[in-house]
């Protein structure tokens, strides 16, 4: 079966239409079929509709994604309650241990992102992976730092990533590799991203799955939940009325 390649993390500002257009066109040119741009809590419905139209023009499937950066556990729970039914993918940017643990436990969270380059403040460890494996969250890796960092910083980052990917694989967490870029020139072809993943320990099919099957599965699961007639995973209302 042909793989559907996706990039769930294009950092396009929905207000900057020309940049969004450039990024999305480049993604389509490089062979992606599904993209998500990073939306915020302030993004208006009209802006989302515009980005969706831009994606449709170049033949891309648009996924609405929101990145949450809560300051406390309570704020995270409040935001999840408020936003879960509005977005297809919810990613929690884990900047503190408290947030990371709560996000890993919560089944409403789709992706866990650890953006900090300081290895002492990256909280993806075995305990985090164990919590996430019981929930539904996947581990997201952005390749942008690999492209923009140099020297010792890149070495340290790769070393952290290699350890985290090994832990995620041990606990069978879905790994999603995204670009995380805001400039078209930093976008890479899906197979190039898969090969880049080999330098932090994701090889062969696992690397390809991280840019195709795993993100598509996350989106498919949420679209099913957000669709009409959903009752529980695998159960949906197909007919309603007195004659049933």
């Amino acid at each position: 079966m042909k793989r559907v390649f996706s990039d769930l993390h294009l950092q396009a500002n929905s207000k900057d239409k020309p940049l969004t257009q450039k990024l999305v066109s480049k993604a389509a040119e490089l062979g992606y079929k599904m993209v998500a741009t990073q939306l915020t809590l302030e993004t208006k419905f009209e802006e989302i509709r515009e980005v969706k139209a831009i994606c449709a023009d170049v033949g891309l499937d648009f996924v609405s994604r929101v990145d949450l950066r809560p300051g406390s556990q309570e704020e995270l729970l409040y935001l999840l309650r408020r936003l879960r039914r509005r977005f297809e993918v919810i990613c929690v940017v884990c900047e503190t241990k408290e947030i990371a643990r709560q996000a890993a436990k919560d089944r409403r969270v789709d992706l866990l992102n650890f953006p900090l380059l300081d290895y002492r403040r990256r909280f993806f460890d075995r305990a985090e992976a164990e919590l996430a494996s019981a929930g539904a969250a996947g581990f997201e890796v952005d390749v942008k730092p690999i492209l923009v960092l140099e020297g010792a910083a890149r070495v340290r980052f790769l070393s952290c990533l290699r350890r985290e990917v090994a832990i995620a694989q041990e606990f069978r967490l879905p790994i999603v590799v995204s670009s995380g870029v805001s400039e078209p020139v930093l976008l890479r072809k899906p197979r190039e991203v898969a090969l880049l993943s080999s330098i932090f320990g994701l090889t062969g099919d696992a690397a390809l799955n991280a840019i195709s099957r795993n993100p598509v599965k996350v989106v498919g699961r949420n679209r099913e939940k957000l669709g009409t007639g959903f009752v529980a995973p695998g159960i949906r209302i197909i007919k309603q009325g007195e004659d049933c």
Binding site: I146, L147, R188, E192, L195, L196, S198, I199
Partner: peptide
């Protein structure tokens, strides 16, 4: 494969 990965890192 190593060369292809390295080429992808050219910015």
């Amino acid at each position: 494969e190593n060369v292809r990965a390295a080429l992808a890192t050219i910015t």
